[in-house]
């Protein structure tokens, strides 16, 4: 049994929802350890592979919160396909920066940004049917689906991400102590 476990490469998918891709940049901050990682995992859907649909995976990393209908669709796809789902970064954990629009009305936001902001000439609120509909409030992802692990930080450092992933891959309970655990 052990041999089977050792031989099979794990599949890892990542995505950014209502985030800034900063957590993905921090993920790349593991630098040359990325080469060690690809020895142990294959990447499925991820900005690194440009695969558009998530197949059956062992681990899913979600950056960013939920701000529109497409975010919910992708998050649910990841939850269906990934055995272990990890929220990475402040936005996925508590909504983060995008959630700071939550005390404003969405209509007012759109109006100000696209119509009434100084310097805008004949602006219009985008309404192409291909655009995902924004939600009235931004939510952290654990309010939509079950999340197995959380890596806080804005962004978490490459070292924190590496510690967390290697703990998980080696079968240890992932732990971030001082100074890897931080919220900013």
């Amino acid at each position: 049994m052990e041999a089977v476990v050792q031989n099979r490469k794990l599949r890892l998918a990542t995505t950014s929802l209502a985030g800034c891709f900063g957590c993905h940049m921090a993920f790349l901050d593991i630098d040359e350890r990325l080469l060690d990682l690809v020895e142990r995992v294959d990447f499925d859907r991820s900005p690194l592979t440009d695969i558009k649909q998530c197949g059956a995976c062992d681990i899913g990393l979600i950056e960013g919160g939920i701000c529109n209908a497409e975010n919910i669709h992708v998050l649910q796809e990841f939850r269906r396909q990934c055995k272990v789902l990890i929220a990475i970064g402040a936005c996925a954990v508590n909504g983060g920066l995008p959630a700071q629009r939550n005390h404003l009305s969405l209509g007012q936001c759109l109006q100000e940004v696209y119509l009434t902001w100084p310097g805008i000439v004949s602006g219009q609120i985008p309404n192409d049917p291909e655009l995902p509909l924004p939600l009235d409030k931004v939510h952290p992802i654990h309010e939509i689906v079950r999340i197995d692990y959380f890596i806080p930080g804005c962004p978490p450092s490459g070292d924190a991400i590496w510690k967390f992933l290697t703990d998980l891959l080696d079968g240890r309970t992932p732990r971030l102590g001082h100074p890897l655990l931080h919220f900013d």
Partner: peptide, 27 residues
């Protein structure tokens, strides 16, 4: 609304420091 990245108190905040101490990873 405890958005640590945009809070001036971050790093000197007891609520945040206790969350670290007690390994609070999610809300």
């Amino acid at each position: 609304n405890h958005f640590c990245p945009s809070c001036e108190k971050s790093g000197n905040c007891m609520l945040q420091a206790l969350a670290y101490e007690l390994e609070m990873l999610s809300p």
